[in-house]
Nucleic acid binder design. Structure first.
Lengths: 234, 234
DNA sequence: CGGGATCCGTAAAGATACTG
DNA sequence: CAGTATCTTTACGGATCCCG
């Protein structure tokens, strides 16, 4: 917020003072989906400066939305309080509105492979996968060497791992497409099947993993919401 | 927003770019509850500078949230588009969260008689009132002369009128209390009955209007939501 | 390597005055 | 009524650096 408060007793204004400052809603989204470490949060809001992130975390702590926890290992963890967890309703409402009324074209102007892969890592559903280590390689041919290749490593009983350097494991499935296509799939704009039929997406390797990709790829939490706008936004 | 966009395809981020700039959420609240004229909007967001209000209105127009209409009488009206009307879900979520988790004490730090009276004017329910002109005078003894006296004039079939200078009509009901008490009643923190029993509120005049005040005084849209916080906010 | 703090240039917002 | 214009204050972005 630029300065001071709105000086209104209305609960919308009181809440907006805390929630509607730059980056705060996006940061809260990261916290609500479960990130707790400073550098994990940074991956979710990569264009936010660390200084501002630090400032916002302090503000949210003062506002009673999160608490700072220092576990034994020396790091710092940020955990939502009950008030903070209750913000999922606000995040949902905002995201639902965005998904309904923004044209896909507009969203697909803001492509970012590391953000996409980081989200995919979070929402990947391992249950349809075989009960062993599975490695999926993503190739975005049009991108720079540093952003072209990514690996998701799924190990039973562990968190999904995202690598931007070759982890050295055998790859079960090779995925190749442009970033826009993968983002559109992730956002529910098109399906894996449709992308393959349009030759926009190529899968090579394990047949089962190919077939089930639409399932184990968890998709954005808002992917199910249908668009309502046609021309509302320019 | 300070500059540029968040560069994220996530619908939360896309929406936050438009919705989470300073004053925007509060302004949208005014639009959602039905204000359409520049100077009516100003009464709802009195601390927002006209320059910023004008800028925000343009931004919201560009974002497809409202349209500018020039009726025959020369003025300008701002009307929400379908996308704008759909924002009521976001405003509700934000206001509900605020009402749940902010201590009443915090809200009641931001007292403003003109804002309160303006809100009361909007939500007053004339149906329990007799079918004739009713005038209710509010007295806040502790305030400066310019803010001490207010009148609500209810005429059957017309919009409720708010005056800060004596309209000259016979007064049906005299309400006297401090601003904090009236605001607390409006926000659902205490009832009219409780305030009267505590001697915080004095009603003189028409018995029926006195008895039914809790009914015709419409209360804040969020008054029904119960608090959940006790100590979450400092 | 995680978790920040510092400094400086730019962009946004506040205050107030003024106008078609 | 519906805004502009101007000037000052504050916040933010970006780079760099620091420390356990």
């Amino acid at each position: 917020m630029t300065q001071g408060s709105y000086h209104q007793f209305c609960p919308v204004a009181m809440a907006a003072e805390v929630l509607c400052t730059r980056w705060t809603m996006v940061l809260l989204r990261e916290l609500v989906v479960g990130s707790t470490r400073f550098n994990d949060l940074r991956r979710g809001v990569p264009r936010m400066s660390p200084a501002l992130l630090s400032k916002r975390l302090k503000e949210l702590e003062r506002a009673g939305i999160l608490t700072r926890i220092v576990p034994g290992d020396g790091g710092t963890e940020y955990h939502l309080t009950p008030a903070g967890r209750d913000l999922h309703a606000v995040i949902d409402a905002v995201g639902l509105w965005g998904q309904r009324w923004f044209e896909a074209d507009v969203s697909l102007k803001n492509l970012d492979p590391s953000l996409l892969m980081w989200d995919m890592r979070r929402w990947l559903d391992p249950t349809p996968l075989p009960d062993r280590r599975c490695v999926i390689q993503f190739l975005y041919p049009e991108l720079s060497p540093a952003q072209r290749l990514w690996w998701l490593v799924v190990q039973p009983g562990e968190e999904v791992d995202l690598c931007s350097v070759d982890p050295g494991f055998d790859v079960d499935l090779y995925v190749s497409c442009d970033l826009r296509t993968m983002t559109a799939i992730w956002m529910g704009v098109i399906t894996v099947r449709a992308a393959r039929e349009m030759q926009s997406l190529t899968l090579t390797g394990d047949r089962q993993l190919s077939r089930d990709m639409q399932t184990w790829l968890g998709l954005s939490p808002f992917a199910a919401e249908k668009k309502r706008a046609r021309e509302a936004l320019g």
